[in-house]
Nucleic acid binder design. Sequence first.
DNA 1: GCGCTAGTATACCGGCCGGTATACTCCGGC
DNA 2: GCCGGAGTATACCGGCCGGTATACTAGCGC
Lengths: 188, 188
Amino acid sequence: MDNRSTILVRALELWSERGYDAVGVQEIVDLAGITKPTLYHYFGSKRGLLDALIDERSAALRDSLAVATEYRGDLVLTLEAVVRAYFDFARKEGAFYRMQLGFWFAPPKSDEHAAVLSRNLGQHAALERLFEAAANDHGNMRGRHKAYAATFLGMINTYIGLWLNGYASLDDKLVYQAVKQFQHGIYS
Amino acid sequence: MDNRSTILVRALELWSERGYDAVGVQEIVDLAGITKPTLYHYFGSKRGLLDALIDERSAALRDSLAVATEYRGDLVLTLEAVVRAYFDFARKEGAFYRMQLGFWFAPPKSDEHAAVLSRNLGQHAALERLFEAAANDHGNMRGRHKAYAATFLGMINTYIGLWLNGYASLDDKLVYQAVKQFQHGIYS
DNA sequence: GCGCTAGTATACCGGCCGGTATACTCCGGC
DNA sequence: GCCGGAGTATACCGGCCGGTATACTAGCGC
């Protein structure tokens, strides 16, 4: 593996466990077995490394969500596809998802938050479009697409949070259950 | 206001906006108009200040939750009381709630996470007890109390997150709606 | 008035922070 | 064989980090 990739892997390793501010550039390059000028050659700054990491690692989720959030007339199937896209990605990239989720809840003026802001606004927007399109077939949903997008994504992240802490497995059964609970509540 | 209280207020102000690691002790004491030995006299360390802040500011929520999570035979009323306790607290202590929520999603080995860990485990446990007690009256809920507690709390925090970013108001109407959606889903 | 304690300030510590100036090596193009 | 650029290391920068040694002052018990 070339130095650039090694740096990205090690940075994710350290940041996901102990946080962006808490882990310095020196520690990353030590673990990667290289020196600081090499890191600065590839990424320009600590923040540049962070942005590159976020951008490259989240590409797969961005792509699969672009497909999954397209509404084709069946809300249940579409929502299941969305949940499955998130679950699949989280299972593959657990450490990254944990890190990125933490950054989303980091203070609004922090580098971490800024680094994931545009990505997550894009995800929200895609989900809102989905619920808006679905409202044409489900009249009683109209006008609530913002709230639906937020609570749906909140539920997905709640389940992924449970999995990250060992309290759930992100399998197909949970996909169905999550969508069912979102639609029909806990008594279903 | 005495110096000790001033330090707590200013620390919350800075940490909630920019994060625990990103704001140094020096900046806090400058804003508070005092010097470092005073801070170290009262709190012993930066971490000590963090612990004191978390402990003292969350006391009100802890107390009202202790009452609200007691199951008295009516699940709907009880859940509404819990949501109301969270919403009331968040409305009164918005900056603190934002900070504390961020800490919960901070990396598992960070000081921030450690500082809120025991508090949040306590809240989870209280909610689990509530759903366990309710399962005696609602047989089809049995065995799922962990998942219910997690998703219920996740939903509450999703709504508070919306409010923190200006997309919702934490009023009584939302209390009813939240509990209703949790029970019966989005079509209700 | 004396002594003790709480509270506060001045001035300082070693160490780590993000970042860089400089120089070397290695390799492909010609 | 030579040139240029990509990649890398050594050694360094100013500045901030959390934390503290010391000394002063104000207030209270007696």
